[in-house]
Amino acid sequence: MTLTDKSPDQKPATDVAGPAHPLGVLWRAVTTIWSVPKARIGVVMLGVFVLGALFAPLIAPYSPTNNDFGRSEDMTAAHLLGTTAAGQDVLSQVIYGARVSVFVGFIAGLFSTIIAVLIGLSWGYLRNKTADVINFIVNLFLVIPALPLMIVIAAYLQNGGIGMIILVVVITGWAWGARVLRSQTQSLRSRDFVTAAIFSGESSGRIVFREILPNMTSLIVGSFFGAATAAILAEAGLSFLGLGDSTTISWGTMLFWAQNSNALLTGQWILLFAPGLCISLLATSLSLINFGVDGLSNPRLREGAKR
């Protein structure tokens, strides 16, 4: 926008969102993360996993469920990572396994974060007895060990598959984010600009979502990545215990079958190494990206591009 004095009416007056286009804000958000070297490595790593998951059918040499091959074969040119005890190609399984982890991480992370935002914001904004009750419930969910609770629920729900795992992860995973967002909401709500918004005649909803929420972008993105990491590790753990649907191809179930088929005794270390390494690298990539989200609440992201 050029700054000329004569034209107060040129710009559509209804547009009061800010000087930068929303897509511009998004772009600058990405470049902000990108500008932190650690986060850049994380973005690249995550990108590889996401692409692998999306294009698994194109990349994988075989179908992951095809068990026509020799059993427990070593690494050969035909099977770069060998075959499983059931005669499936390990490399193909590793590639397809990314789908479950990325999916569970994204969906469970998303739902956990949504619950965390809703509860964290209302809990931080309220100042009555309800806040005490929520406080108690959140603290309860924080101290109750999540994995045993997941195991118990999963045991009752019997082979519920990915949907069940996501549900269980969300039930146990929102509390941490809610706590962090609550304390930030409390500190923001005592700032004068929130009081000023009341004086400007704003409704409570608008104050929470337009005044407070945008100032917590980095925390929200951070808690998304945190929840996604926890979800990926939890899915792997539950599948490893055989509590998911053990016919799904995921890194956790690969480890489950590897342990059950005594890959340790046969010396097929790659069966343990490959899926576990993938879980670790995926989780690491999210932790690395989290190093770069701090700058996301910075108002400079919203500056007009042509200044």
Binding site: V16, A17, G18, P19, R191, D192, F193, T195, A196, A197, F199, S200, G201, E202, E211, P214, N215, S297, P299, R302
Partner: peptide
């Protein structure tokens, strides 16, 4: 009301235009 601390009384993420237009609209 006019607040004491001008650094805390304006939402850092909103333009002057947004900040002033809200009470006008309301």
């Amino acid at each position: 009301m006019v607040f004491q601390d001008p650094y805390s009384a304006l939402n850092p993420l909103h333009t002057v235009e947004y900040t002033l237009t809200r009470p006008i609209v309301n």
